[in-house]
Design a protein around this nucleic acid. Structure first.
Lengths: 65, 65
DNA sequence: CTTCAATAGGGTAATTGGGGGA
DNA sequence: AGTGTCCCAATTACCCTATTGA
């Protein structure tokens, strides 16, 4: 179902990854993030992709005593 | 329900534990820290995890000094 | 229409990742 | 077993100004 997907601003993505907005833009240029361009040239990123990326690197390992 | 979690850079964690960033990365490899990876390959660590680990080392029953 | 915050763009410094060895 | 330091290359952070977005 293609409902309107939530688009995130560079600042939002940068806050989620704890990086600089400039770094987020480079990820889009490198093809690691799908960047949606506004008519003015600003970038928007898909929330689903960002969340998938965050979950991908997550090592949910329980530490047994 | 994923609210924006606070992520810390390796340098931040290293400063809190008074160790080298390299050591922090090893903790992530050993599964003792939840490591979130940026698309660029850098690691980010959960502030809650770090705090829990810091508190965990405070198993002092009654000996603050 | 105006105002203000955020963003794009390039360039340079600092940090980080990885292996190997002490 | 665990940590600190060496090398390298890659990634990221902060400086600036002009433009876009709401």
């Amino acid at each position: 179902m293609s409902v309107a997907e939530e688009l995130l601003t560079p600042g939002e993505v940068a806050r989620m990854f704890r990086v600089d907005p400039k770094t987020v833009r480079k990820w889009g240029q490198l093809g690691r993030l799908t960047s949606v361009r506004t008519p003015g040239g600003h970038h928007r990123y898909r929330e689903n992709e960002v969340r998938a990326l965050l979950d991908h690197g997550r090592t949910t390992v329980n530490n047994p005593s």
